[in-house]
């Protein structure tokens, strides 16, 4: 079963966090990614540029509309994701709880939907 782990964190804190702390976090992310690659749980994952780089696109009345910023303004912003393999939700929760940002922000775990072949 595949699960998407969406990493939410308060990105405004990033500029005020001391450099050593950010470096530690990066090292932890590196180690975590390595660990789930080794265990076979890793399918993919990336970090995102901050929401100020986001563009929201819609088609309304046949016309494309683009707006600056993310779709929803929230206290914590989507900052990255992992796509993982797990036998069930318990295993996915275990993996998600080891993502370094779980300690500062939150991880939303969503099962990937599989459509019937026909």
């Amino acid at each position: 079963m595949k699960y998407l782990c969406l990493i939410y964190d308060d990105e405004s804190k990033r500029s005020t966090t001391p450099k050593e702390q950010l470096d530690t976090m990066m090292t932890e992310y590196g180690a975590f990614t390595e660990a789930i690659k080794k265990s076979g749980q890793y399918i993919g994952g990336d970090a995102l540029q901050p929401t100020q780089t986001a563009t929201t696109v819609r088609i309304r009345q046949g016309k494309i509309s683009t707006t600056d910023g993310p779709f929803a303004e929230t206290k914590e912003q989507l900052g990255g994701f992992y796509l993982i393999n797990a036998t069930d939700l318990n295993e996915a929760i275990q993996v998600a709880s080891r993502i370094p940002s779980a300690r500062t922000g939150s991880i939303e775990v969503r099962p990937i939907r599989v459509f019937d072949a026909h």
Partner: peptide
Amino acid sequence: RDAQIPYQVPSRAE
């Protein structure tokens, strides 16, 4: 069913 919550007794750690 959809999030596959397993039918299990949790491990000691959980």
